[in-house]
Each structure stands twice: as structure tokens, then as C-alpha cells.
């Protein structure tokens, strides 16, 4: 399995992107931004279509540009329109899927590529994606120690963060930027329809077991690595699409952590019940 170059690239991609998604996902889930990441992911379909329309051989840069434009539109409308978040995101999600579909319906010969973009493909991880994933990982590793505290405080209470002297809006923009690029690059591995799972499932498992933020972050990163690498390996072994394979691995892990957390909770409550009895 590991002797084949495409598998090495896919494993390396999963090793970098899955923990990155899990780390960002801790804050995505806590800030109720799962729908946001889904919206920018779906915008990638329009990005892919535009790339093909322009005759570009590599769709990732076009996907990033369109997803960033949609992310900026979400932020702009949220600050100026007075509409609810989910209304804005639903509007942009359906709008960008419609644009992508209309363009793709006019083009021919991209059926396989569309399937890859929707469901992910281990063959789709090329050198561009690896370089981008490496750069993102480096950026988050360096910036993470600086961003972690402000981001945690902004997540806990934006007003307190403001009075503590943080530039809340600038941090929010930086988070949206890094999240959008990460989601778009990860789509090559997991696909548009399932990328949200890599952002949500490992952090959700970690939230069940972690008692402190430090524990939650470490667990999310560990679960992300197991989900990503395990999913890629299972995809190769069972000859199934990479996205569903990663998601099913994550859900299996989630079911195990849910069982552990329920058992732990029962153990904690039992002495209390005995005392009351």
C-alpha cells in the first residue's frame, strides 16, 4: 500500500489536513460555524466549474478564489444586511451550487472530475495540494500558539475579548481565511459533500471525552489523524471512494467515544445515587 506514490501522497495529505481540520474544527463546532464551512465547500463546485471553463488544468487555485469570495460575501452580508446567518449561508450555498451546475452542464468531458470533487479521491492529492497543506500546517503551527488564546476567548465571549484588548473582528477574519483555504484544499481528499465531517466529527468526539480545552484540542488532533489516515487506508483496501471511507472511520470512532463518555458518566453518578439511596 505504501509503496505506491499516489498512496504516499494521500497518506501524507491526510496526515497534514486531518489534524489541521480537527484543530480548526474545535472552534468551528464551538462557534456554530459548521454550516459556514459547508457553504464555502459547496462554493468550490462553482470554483471547479470556473476553472474548467477557463481551461485551467489544476482546479484548486480557482476553488480557493471562489470559496474566499463566497466567505467574504457571507461576512459582508452578515455585517450589513441584518439577515440571519443561516439565511445568508443557505442563499450563497444554493446560489454557488446553481452557478457551478449551470457552467458544468455546458461543458463536456468532466464527469469523472466532478465525481472526484463531490466525493473525494485519493488520486486527486497531487503536489499542489501537498504544498498547500504543508504551508497551511506550518502557518497554523506557528500562528496557532499566538492565536489559540485570543481565539478561545473570542469563542467564549466576544465582548469580554474586546474589553481584554483583542481586535475581535481582525481575528474573526483571519480565522475565516485560514478555515476557507483549509476546507478547499481538503475537498481534494474528502470531497465537497463530506469535508464538513472532517471538521465536525473528530472535534465532536474530543468534546465528549475532554474535560479541559487542552485535553479537547489534543484529543481532536489525535482523532483527526486516526480518522484521516485510517480512512485513506480503508479506501485503498476496500476500493471505495476516499470521502465516505474517512467519514465512516470518523463515525466509528465517535460511536466508541460516545460509549466511553456514557460509561464514565454512569461511573461518576453511581456513588451519588448510592449515597442518596
Amino acid at each position: 500500500m505504501f509503496t505506491e506514490p499516489f498512496m504516499l501522497r494521500a497518506i501524507l495529505g491526510a496526515l497534514m489536513l486531518a489534524p489541521l481540520c480537527a484543530l480548526l474544527g474545535v472552534f468551528v463546532t464551538a462557534r456554530r460555524m459548521a454550516f459556514f464551512s459547508d457553504t464555502v465547500a459547496h462554493a468550490s463546485l462553482a470554483g471547479t466549474a470556473v476553472s474548467f471553463l477557463l481551461g485551467l488544468s489544476e482546479p484548486t487555485p480557482g476553488m480557493i478564489v471562489v470559496s474566499l469570495a463566497v466567505a467574504a460575501a457571507i461576512v459582508w452580508l452578515r455585517e450589513r444586511s441584518g439577515l440571519f446567518n443561516d439565511t445568508i449561508m443557505s442563499l450563497l450555498l444554493t446560489g454557488s451550487v446553481a452557478v457551478g451546475t449551470v457552467i458544468l452542464s455546458r461543458l463536456h468531458g468532466f464527469r469523472a472530475e466532478i465525481h472526484r470533487v463531490l466525493f473525494g479521491d485519493i488520486l486527486a492529492i497531487g503536489s499542489t495540494e501537498l504544498i498547500l497543506a504543508g504551508a497551511l500546517l506550518l502557518l497554523v503551527a506557528i500562528g496557532g500558539s499566538w492565536m489559540l488564546s485570543p481565539l478561545s476567548l473570542i469563542t467564549a465571549h466576544e465582548d469580554l475579548a474586546h474589553v481584554a484588548g483583542l481586535r475581535v473582528r481582525a481575528f474573526n477574519y483571519a480565522f475565516v481565511l485560514v478555515l476557507t483555504i483549509t476546507v478547499t484544499v481538503t475537498i481534494r481528499l474528502v470531497g465537497i459533500l463530506l469535508v464538513g465531517a472532517l471538521l465536525v466529527i473528530p472535534p465532536a468526539s474530543a468534546r465528549l471525552l475532554g474535560r479541559t480545552l487542552r485535553q479537547e484540542i489534543w484529543l481532536a488532533v489525535a482523532f483527526g489523524i486516526v480518522t484521516g489516515v485510517g480512512g485513506v487506508a480503508a479506501s485503498y483496501a476496500a476500493d471505495i471512494p476516499c470521502g465516505p471511507s474517512i467519514v465512516l472511520t470518523g463515525i466509528t470512532l465517535f460511536a466508541v467515544t460516545l460509549g466511553i463518555s456514557k460509561t464514565r458518566r454512569t461511573e461518576r453518578l453511581e456513588p451519588l445515587v448510592r449515597e442518596e439511596g
Partner: peptide, 23 residues
């Protein structure tokens, strides 16, 4: 916001520049 599994110790560390490296 209870979206994060944050202890009181961690929360208090977030305010102060001297403990921003609490992790």
C-alpha cells in the same frame, strides 16, 4: 459559551498577556 470544554483555570489564563501561553 459552553461550546468548548474549558476549565476555569484556562478561562482565567486567557485574559492576561503573561499567561497567553497557558497551553
Amino acid at each position: 459559551d459552553v461550546g468548548l470544554a474549558m476549565s476555569v483555570r484556562e478561562f482565567l489564563a486567557l485574559r492576561r498577556p503573561s499567561t497567553r501561553n497557558w497551553f
